[in-house]
């Protein structure tokens, strides 16, 4: 009966369909990654791009461009996209708030603020030095936003969280500005980074942040079942014997780890963590095991696409990927806000 077949929910066929979908997304990601190696102010043939990976000829100008500029950029994009998307999905699960995202809740700006301070006061220049500051800043900002928003009647509603996040972002942004105005040297170092960019970063940056991102991603996947239970609601989860406070704390730490690492590598890139989980949910339904797995693939897919778009739109100049994601992601925020469920929360 076709009526029965349209009820997917569980079962081997549904799992098979989701698995196939994940493989398709992975294939798409490979294509986009290749495009990211090819497209830019210098167009490079696919042959050259593939040769640069597997059959590197240091005498070829094109292959050198791929190897030294576009490959690091693409790999950093892969890591940052996954980390931000999973961080966003986990925030949405634990705050039970469809608008949660590292940039909207001010976690990104916390990390960015701490990094600018580290550069300004301690003269740190390498991500492996300031990544710890990023964790500290992200942690403090998320704790501040969450505790302010959850005080008072009604708890941490989407509107209160978004307002607290926006104001913390504005405050930290103006302090960052003050520091930048005091010191042209710092300004020059972080000007492009602050807009959110994966360009011009050496590959070492990626190796540096990889352990933190990997911890966050694996930890997130391990917590997926608990997040599913949490999604039933605070009371139900407790009744089922779950330590909701402990789960919140652990996932907040993982989110801070992933966000801090992503901001250290690429600056504050917004809205990837908001949009990707919502897009993914359309296909996977509410099961966080699948949502997180899809986020790991679709996050970089989106980030790299945005980065490629940034290279194409203002050719031969480049648009920072953080600006592209904000321009595409902000309408997403508006669309979610228009759903009745959110506004009435």
């Amino acid at each position: 009966m076709s009526g029965v077949a349209t009820l997917p929910a569980t079962g081997a066929r549904w799992r098979l369909a989701l698995g196939t979908g994940l493989l398709c997304a992975l294939g798409l990601l490979v294509v986009v990654a290749l495009l990211s190696l090819r497209i830019g102010s210098v167009g490079i043939a696919t042959r050259d791009a593939i040769d640069a990976l597997f059959n590197y000829d240091p005498n070829s100008y094109n292959q050198t461009v791929v190897r030294s500029l576009r490959l690091p950029r693409t790999i950093i994009g892969l890591g940052v996209g996954s980390a931000l998307a999973v961080a966003g999905a986990m925030m949405q699960a634990t705050t039970r708030n469809p608008l949660a995202d590292p940039s909207i809740l001010g976690v990104n700006s916390g990390a960015a603020f701490a990094i600018v301070n580290a550069i300004f006061f301690f003269g740190l220049t390498h991500p492996y030095q300031y990544v710890w500051f990023a964790f500290l800043g992200a942690g403090i900002a998320s704790a501040l936003v969450y505790s302010i928003a959850s005080a008072g009647r009604g708890g941490a509603t989407p509107v209160k969280l978004a307002l607290a996040g926006a104001v913390v972002t504005a405050l930290l942004g103006s302090w960052i500005t003050a520091l930048l105005l005091l010191d042209e040297q710092t300004l020059d170092t972080v000007r492009f980074w602050l807009a959110g960019s994966i360009a011009g970063r050496p590959i070492e940056v990626f190796w540096m942040v990889l352990p933190f991102m990997a911890t966050g991603l694996v930890g997130g996947l391990l917590l997926a079942r608990q997040l599913n239970v949490m999604n039933l609601g605070e009371d139900t989860a407790r009744a089922l014997g779950m330590h909701t406070g402990r789960l919140r704390l652990v996932s907040a730490l993982l989110v801070v780890l992933m966000t801090g690492a992503a901001v250290s590598a690429a600056g504050p890139i917004g809205f990837v963590g908001l949009a990707v989980p919502h897009i993914v949910r359309v296909f996977t339904g509410p099961d966080y095991r699948w949502i997180l797995a899809y986020c790991i693939v679709v996050g970089p897919l989106l980030l790299l696409s945005a980065d490629i778009a940034g290279r194409v739109i203002t050719r031969p100049a480049e648009l920072q990927v953080g600006i592209v994601t904000a321009m595409c992601g902000a309408p997403f925020l508006i669309a979610i806000a228009r759903q009745r469920r959110v506004a009435s929360l």
């Binding site: 509107v159 807009a195 809205f271 920072q320 953080g322 904000a326 992601g329 902000a330 309408p331 508006i334």
Partner: peptide, 21 residues
């Protein structure tokens, strides 16, 4: 009012990205 705030924050983010650009 709540929807207005959220939509406004979205518009603000969009326009701020334009200014940053």
């Amino acid at each position: 009012g709540n929807r207005l705030v959220l939509v406004g924050i979205g518009i603000d983010a969009l326009l701020a990205a334009g200014t940053r650009y």
